[in-house]
Simulated scan of single mutants.
Amino acid sequence: MTGFPVRKVLGAALALLVATLPIGAAASAAPALSLPRPTGPYAVGTTTLHLTDPARADPWRPDVRRELMVSLWYPARPDDGPAAPYTTAAVSSRIVAAEGLPLPPDVLTTVATNARRDVPVRPPAGRGWPLVVLSPGFSLSRESLTGLAEDLAARGYVVAGVDHPYEARGVEFPDGRVAECLACELDGVLPKVVRGRAADVSFLLDRLTGARPAWRGARYLDRRRIAVVGHSIGGASAAHLLTTDRRVDAAADLDGTLFVPVATNRPLLLVGADRPADASWTRDWPGVTGWKRWLTVAGTGHMSFTDRPVLGAQLGLDPGAVPAERQLLITREYVAAFLDVHLRHRHRPLLDGPSPAFPEVAVDTPLRN
């Protein structure tokens, strides 16, 4: 549950597309790429933060301090500001190069998003906006969860997507430096990744909710309502944060093996792809003594909880049994329902049991061999 099978999802689609084009035609003939529109009522803004933790050495580069790149998505005032880029050319080129694909290196910079860059935050009507931190899968970067982030922001959440340097194919800093995936070349590091990411998120919370926040929009946050959601190993770190940071009220793990055991009385949502039950989830399930749900989504794979199936389908790849945009819709609806229940204390019957609207989703019936 922790790999990054780009070749099976985005990479396979790109390779298929290129194979059907005349030599030299790939750049001009590539179809337009875009993310589905958010479902919430608010316009979406976004901005980026570059943070450095002076008290912590980087776990993969002990000679430097730990740096983070963070994208913030938030409810915005309606504005005609510039559309936000999906990712940078440097990051796109490293994803393409990692798979050896004969495509324009900047192909992922062409993805059309639904957020406007650096537009004003919409003030909340009452309490501040709840905060949700997103952590991507191993070797992925923060753009891989943009479709989920935009939707949550449109529903009234501030969302912070974190890049964990040296654990992604590429993380670009404002001065043009690019952190390559050093951890990708090592064996036996996944528990270290989980613990390190939890430390990254705790530092980010310090910088967003402390006395002198790093983002001027932080005055609109409700510091008492915080959740962490992650994909793959990002989901494992989200669950781990329930045991390490009391500020985290709830966590959701999207198809991530629990490399560090989890025991907690705080809310935990596990969402798994269509495969036999993960052994670590079965192991830790009894130790989750508070609210908990375990969902299994039929017809899906590991990358179904990211943007990759949507972009892959636009590039010609068959998404499988579940249409690509529906895969993203399922993720959006169930994650939002979980956050509404535990950060807004709203009843969402979607989490009470099977739903006729989403027959693909089995609730708390995962213990298969």
Rank of each mutant, 00 (worst) to 15 (best):
D245N: 07
M1W: 04
G161H: 00
H345N: 08
D352V: 03
N265Y: 01
V162T: 07
V189A: 09
G128I: 06
V6A: 13
V193E: 02
T146S: 14
A238N: 03
A90Y: 04
L208D: 06
D163N: 12
A98D: 14
R177V: 10
L51Q: 10
H302L: 12
R224Q: 08
P356I: 02
N265A: 14
A324D: 05
G299C: 12
V194A: 08
A149T: 01
G11K: 04
I330E: 04
D200Q: 05
L145Y: 05
G24E: 10
H164E: 10
D58G: 13
R7M: 14
V189Q: 09
R117G: 00
T244V: 09
D222E: 09
L328W: 08
E185Y: 06
G234C: 05
V288S: 06
P62Q: 13
V158A: 09
P276V: 06
R246L: 01
A198P: 02
A179M: 06
R246Q: 07
I226P: 01
D187L: 13
P5R: 09
R293P: 03
L317F: 06
V171D: 13
R197T: 04
T46C: 15
R155I: 00
R116N: 07
A211D: 13
L134A: 09
W129L: 03
A273N: 11
A199S: 11
L343A: 06
Y166C: 09
R207F: 00
A97N: 10
W129V: 00
R368H: 12
A214S: 12
